[in-house]
Every structure is written in structure tokens, then in C-alpha cells.
């Protein structure tokens, strides 16, 4: 049996809402340690992997590891029907592994709403990329910045063009674009420390200058999720997809891996 409870408006609900523009179906794995989700966008440019440790939920129980495919848009639609103050329970019983049950309980416990959501096949969303998760040292540069600043950069650049070039070297981290109507270049002088301050842009890992070109549509989508958190960590390498990561509590994370654009 698997069962988790959370308050309406909790971080999981916020994240599920924020990933909807990229993801329809996700593969969810539950273990005693927590709730993880993997999903691939329909164009196979972005892979999303998140892990919510059990302690971030109001209560959490998982007797046996389980894996299921969930139509995220349908689940979010159901969750939206909850009222302020409701406690939301998501449950899968061993006897019935064809759907999950979502329950809302009103704060005064006088009203309960039960809904069943059919599970779907999401095996194609399961990429064996676990090795990427421990590949921080393989990235040529990793920096952290306030997620509000990341969102602002993406919005400012998308006025001009669809792409952003992110360049990182020891002296500067820049976001730039060039379009028909002009160009924008946003430069940040980074701090260099292992303990990034919340308000600053910090270069935490540097093996050499690197630059990548990315579609701003995907970057804005990553930025949308990141604004649920204070800071975002971005890793660049010419041999790996761009990594955008936010930490959830001590052990949890949400990570996007975004394939860049190349010059033909």
C-alpha cells in the first residue's frame, strides 16, 4: 500500500501545475524513502526528474516499492477541485493497481470527496539517466542564481528572439540573444564560493569556459518551476544536456535536463 497526505497548495501540487506545459504523462516511483517522478516532453528535448523525500509530506507510507504511469494533466485537474484548507490524500492499494484514489477532506472533517484516477502506461518516460544525477563533476561550469532573476532573464530575452546563449567563464555569466529587432545581453559578475548566498549569482564549479544555445520556450518552463524555490542551479557542458536544478528540503530535488541547439 502507498499513501501520502498533503495540504492543498503544497509544493507537490505547485510543481505538478508548473510542469504541465511540458509534460502530459509521467512515470511515478514510490519507495519508503519518497516520491519520485520522471517525464519526457513530447518533443524529447526535456527530461524532468524530481524526488520528494517522505518528510516533506504531512504523512507518507509506502510498504512496497511501486511504479505507475499518471496522466498529470488529469491529476492536476482533480487536485484543482479541492478547497482551501483541504487535506489531500493520494493512495494506491495493493489489491487494485489500475487506479489511484485521491481524497479531499475538509478542515472540519465534515466533507470528504473521493476520486479514482486511472493509471496509464508511461514506460516510455522512464529514461535510464540516473547516472546523470551524480555527474556534477562532469559539468564544465555550475552556477546558482536567485530563481526570480533567472525568470526575469528568460522573459527579457524572449522579447527579442526564441533562443538564449548562456556563456560562463571565470569573470562573467551572461545570457544573451540577438533578433531582428535588436539584441539583449545580461551579464552577472559571479561570486566564487561553495556556499552561495541567496541573493547573488555564484559560480560553484568551473573547469573551463563554456557556452550553450537553448530554446527560451524550454528555459521559461524551467524558470516557472524554479520560482517555487529561492535559488536555481544551472550546469553547462558541451557533452551533456543543460541541467537546471532546484533543491527540495535537504535530500529532494527537481531537475530538468534540456538538450541545447547546435549550429548546422
Amino acid at each position: 500500500m502507498f499513501e501520502l497526505t498533503m495540504a492543498k497548495g503544497s509544493i507537490l501540487q505547485g510543481v505538478l501545475e508548473a510542469i504541465l506545459d511540458l509534460v502530459n504523462v509521467a512515470n511515478v516511483d514510490c519507495s519508503s524513502k519518497g516520491f519520485s517522478l520522471q517525464a519526457l516532453d513530447t518533443e524529447h528535448v526535456v527530461f524532468l526528474s524530481l524526488f520528494f523525500p517522505s518528510e516533506v509530506f504531512r504523512s507518507y507510507r509506502c510498504d512496497e516499492d511501486c511504479s505507475m504511469g499518471i496522466a498529470i494533466a488529469d491529476m492536476v485537474d482533480l487536485l484543482r477541485a479541492s478547497n482551501d484548507g483541504d487535506i489531500i490524500t493520494i493512495k494506491v492499494t495493493d489489491q487494485n493497481f489500475e487506479d489511484i484514489t485521491i481524497t479531499f477532506e475538509s478542515p472540519d472533517k465534515t466533507k470528504t470527496t473521493d476520486m479514482d484516477l486511472q493509471l496509464v502506461d508511461a514506460r516510455s518516460h522512464r529514461l535510464k539517466i540516473s547516472e546523470w544525477h551524480d555527474m556534477e563533476s562532469e559539468y564544465q561550469a555550475i552556477f546558482c542564481m536567485p530563481s526570480a532573476q533567472f525568470m526575469l532573464n528568460c522573459k527579457s530575452l524572449s522579447v527579442i528572439d526564441d533562443d538564449v546563449v548562456i556563456r560562463v567563464n571565470e569573470e562573467v555569466i551572461s545570457f544573451s540573444t540577438k533578433g531582428k529587432s535588436g539584441c539583449v545581453n545580461i551579464s552577472h559578475v559571479p561570486n566564487k564560493t561553495d556556499n552561495p548566498e541567496k541573493a547573488s549569482v555564484t559560480l560553484t564549479h568551473m573547469r573551463g569556459p563554456v557556452s550553450l544555445t537553448l530554446n527560451l520556450r524550454y528555459m521559461k518552463s524551467c524558470a516557472k518551476v524554479s520560482t517555487l524555490f529561492d535559488q536555481v542551479k544551472i550546469g553547462l557542458s558541451t557533452k551533456l544536456p543543460l541541467m537546471v536544478e532546484c533543491k527540495i528540503a535537504e535530500k529532494g530535488y527537481i531537475r530538468y535536463f534540456v538538450a541545447p541547439k547546435i549550429t548546422e
Binding site: 528535448v45 529514461l127 535536463f257 538538450a259 549550429t263 548546422e264
Partner: peptide
């Protein structure tokens, strides 16, 4: 012109 890469270019074991 720029071409959008797919994740499969980085990873084959799907």
C-alpha cells in the same frame, strides 16, 4: 541556422 538537439543524442539507453 540552429537545430534543436534531442536528448537521444546524449543518451541511447531508453
Amino acid at each position: 541556422s540552429r537545430k534543436q538537439m534531442k536528448l537521444s543524442a546524449f543518451f541511447s539507453g531508453k
